[in-house]
Design a protein around this nucleic acid. Structure first.
Lengths: 195, 195
DNA sequence: GTCTATACGGCGATAGAC
DNA sequence: GTCTATCGCCGTATAGAC
């Protein structure tokens, strides 16, 4: 990857990432970006062509980060259930929302193939990791053979994203934690008593 | 409620509701509202004080509609599981997102007590309905006594909201349907064989 | 109630100097 | 590479006539 040769470019990506996370694409102005990044306007337009270009770079950065976290959690030691719960219970700022999931609420991101791609890819990675760990669990007799790995993976991903929504609506992390706990409790019911 | 005496006011509320649903609060301009509503600008500012006022009226309208749908589904005949699945499988435009859940992604709505309230209230109603139907199911022996009604209700609400996110990311309703199906499948595993 | 006119700041970008 | 100046348009109203 590109080394830290370029301070301004780097700071712009990080600044954009933070703003997109909190305010979304429509809510983020180029002016806010260079101010938040501590960079001059001219400098910003030297490094990036404009707002979509900035957003794409920031999205790719955020997508990389989340995909790495996902892979880390699922690469750990432990039973299938342990790895799943490790990921779901990982420390998070539930009130801030998901840095990736937040983006797709914006129509300008949803409608643009290029801007949507990092989001799509990240959820695909999460879904693939969940599916394969559930399959492993089934093969090991940890989960009932009757559960559908793909469907269950989708349900778990969704609980996760939806948890953020519920938490923000209550202005409390409680609903997020409760939703995760509920999902894990349901999942445990697909485990034979021996586990 | 107020009758259809006031065409302009009514059309403004509906227009705002549509725009908020698709574009969120930051993405919705007063100009877009009066244009979409087929109303003059002066007329709009006669009926409403400004953007927050318009948004609040539209949010309340949307909240009423969703709460009514929720209550309808859970008031039906049928077992607890049937009523839950009736609601979850109800016809929806998954790619458009939830008209209520969409709002809370916006920082200006999340940060404003008044604008957040209709969202909070609506999810509270959904959660209460789910919780009580699960309790009924437990009492009737339909669900295992071991499941926590509140947690499970949170998990189901979250699957729902998260399903929209996943669907938009893929630009397909598939992930939404798969997540719902996965959640219902897990729920069925908390039902004794007799049901 | 509805209309048109006006205002001021911010958005998103370009130009050209240094 | 970075800076300042400038641009045209839009967002979010307010004012006052009809």
């Amino acid at each position: 990857m590109a080394d830290r040769q370029d301070g301004a470019r780097e700071r712009l990506i990080e600044g954009t990432r933070e703003l997109l996370w909190d305010r979304g694409y429509v809510g983020t102005s180029p002016t806010a970006i260079w101010r938040a990044s501590g960079v001059g306007q001219g400098s910003m337009y030297h490094h990036f062509q404009g707002k979509p270009d900035l957003a794409l770079a920031a999205e790719r950065r955020a997508a990389q980060a989340m995909q790495q976290q996902v892979r880390e959690s699922f690469a750990r030691e432990g039973s299938a259930y342990e790895r799943i719960s490790e990921y779901l219970l990982r420390e998070r700022d539930a009130l801030r929302g998901c840095p990736i999931g937040r983006l797709i609420a914006d129509p300008e991101i949803a409608a643009d193939e290029r801007l949507r791609e990092p989001v799509r890819e990240t959820f695909a990675v999460l879904h693939a990791c969940l599916t394969s760990v559930i399959e492993e669990g089934k093969a090991a007799g940890e989960f009932d053979a009757g559960i559908d790995a793909e469907q269950t993976a989708s349900a778990l991903s969704a609980v996760f994203q939806g948890g953020y929504t519920l938490a923000r609506a209550e202005a409390s992390t409680g609903p997020f934690e409760q939703a995760i706990a509920g999902a894990l409790a349901l999942l445990r019911r697909s485990m034979p008593a021996s586990h």
